[in-house]
Nucleic acid binder design. Sequence first.
DNA 1: TTTCTTCTTGAGAGCGCTCTCAAATAAAAG
DNA 2: CTTTTATTTGAGAGCGCTCTCAAGAAGAAA
Lengths: 354, 354
Amino acid sequence: MKKLTLEEVGKLAGVSRATVSRVVNGYPHIRPEIRERVQRVIDETGYRPNLLARSLASDRSNIIGLVIPSGAQAVFTDPYFPCLTQGIARGVNTNNLTLALFMVHSEQEEERTILSILGTGLVDGLIVTSDNKGDVFIPELVRHDMPFVQIGRSLYSNQVYRVDTDNVTGSYLATKHLLSLGYQRIATIATNRNCSGDDRFTGYTNAFAEYGRTIDRRLVAYGDYGLESGYHAMRQLIPQRPDAVFVTSDTMALGALRALQEAELRVPDDIAIVGYDDLPPAVQANPQLTTIRQPIEQTGFLAVATLVKILSGEPPESHEIVLPVELVVRASCGAVRMNAGVASAQKANYQVNA
Amino acid sequence: MKKLTLEEVGKLAGVSRATVSRVVNGYPHIRPEIRERVQRVIDETGYRPNLLARSLASDRSNIIGLVIPSGAQAVFTDPYFPCLTQGIARGVNTNNLTLALFMVHSEQEEERTILSILGTGLVDGLIVTSDNKGDVFIPELVRHDMPFVQIGRSLYSNQVYRVDTDNVTGSYLATKHLLSLGYQRIATIATNRNCSGDDRFTGYTNAFAEYGRTIDRRLVAYGDYGLESGYHAMRQLIPQRPDAVFVTSDTMALGALRALQEAELRVPDDIAIVGYDDLPPAVQANPQLTTIRQPIEQTGFLAVATLVKILSGEPPESHEIVLPVELVVRASCGAVRMNAGVASAQKANYQVNA
DNA sequence: TTTCTTCTTGAGAGCGCTCTCAAATAAAAG
DNA sequence: CTTTTATTTGAGAGCGCTCTCAAGAAGAAA
């Protein structure tokens, strides 16, 4: 199975390289008879065009890159990235592209990666998942005018294309839900090093504002979206005696849950909890988490679609796509006490302290 | 910031394209004075070689592909893939390669993907994660003599290079642990559609053999590594009244745990449980899971290293690398009753049924 | 039949790089 | 001061494809 070239296929079919190229790429203006003959040779020989040569000649690699910066150690524990990647992969497949994955582990690697991406012609465009506020990546991309779309909010909005989920509304809904259930001391475990964290905190305060209430700074703790950080933040919060807590990620909520258990506080009886993401951890938790569902997979898919549009030269009208989120009510918020088998198991667990 | 070529850099430095190429690639036999002059021009202009052109000319893309076949829906729920990918990414970075990610969602996509990978010159080699017994991928790769290394066990061992963790020993250890603790009716939740599942079942039977005992088929249930399947398998098992169960993945163990909770069976008092993987779910579980730790990240890293060796023309002596695993004892097996705060929380939870 | 269109095909010039080979220059040897 | 050998450089031929451009074939119009 040696490698064939256009030239050789042409020879076999008795036509020129150019003609073979035309049938391979489905151009019009070919005599059906010839097209068929060439196609037969292609099928018989199993000819496949050399993508590298094609890219070089056409100045289009059809490769797009996905950049996952070093800040995102959560890759391990959080199903967020797999889910997002899944969506991106789907987008890539439906658009006949190839996905290059750039996972950066350290600052130096970041530098090296940027260099190997920019100006090398390897990728046509990029999807950047940086949610980090201090990110230097974006300006660099702009400087090299590398087409890209960012996932999550950006400090450079309006200049970059981005797709995001509606974090402000999401946490507004979560907080409002807690408020409407009558909880008085609603704490939050927020994050402060990333844009989505800011947005989620904004939603939290918005809900308070709507209810004519002000937030109590002592009921605000910070984590980094990781499990451990949720645990520690919750331990910090417990002495303040909150009766509910809005945790801005399910994974952190899992950590918080553990802290609560250790403190022998019952959820939701002693304290209600609402998470964010609606990823598998939300259902694995005990009790199952009331949380905010965001269409992560779709986010990835749309990011690709947007990038494709940009690359095709007809950029989308709007610079941003913000996807809707929804509140998913389960057991942990106390709105629903009984709920199939799971709820009864919870009952068993918690009766002890009743 | 328009794109420079070797030719232009050469013009600026007053040398030929070939010379610039030499300094870019660090070849010897260049007058230091010239090398320096050229280097300065490169630095000043920020010249970056076009990777596509280089690949075409050198017949080496320095891109390797990672194939995640459609069978692996577990991508969502299981941190296995992120972890593996992390290791592969690290390997790719240290070897100055680029990683292309091929995630396949359906059979047709699989076909399409194979075609777009094979014979297109895009990737120099592949890392294949298929653990599926019925996989048609491998023979195809061999037929096109595409260099690759497989992660996990293969039906075609001895012909392909592979790196794997020691599944047989792993489940042998897990089962033996249960046996040594004196459990009498040790069930297992296995999987039967993949190679690692076979190996893990073998380890289970090996341990029984060592203890001069035979396994009871009624105590064997099957899942697919997913959470739900663990739940259903456990429900099937409960009527057989096992006093311990070895679940061949932590994620399934989580599902099993839920079934047990619903049945108001206490872990480990009424039934002990041992998982496999030692991924985050093991620690998130309540009680925390005794499990088998396997070096997944390292598996990925070594797979890349192996592939690199193959590509360099000096293939490794051995066709397989099998990494050691270890037993991690936590609360779920009943070997350790008290164990920091977590254990006390468990105590609280389970007292109710005492 | 001749002339003008329209359709179909091939020739050939790149894309930006690598790499061989031979020319040119410098150093060593006779 | 030649001749031999080693070192440094440039010319040029690809890699396999795309794409423009013009030539040839065929059909329509005159």
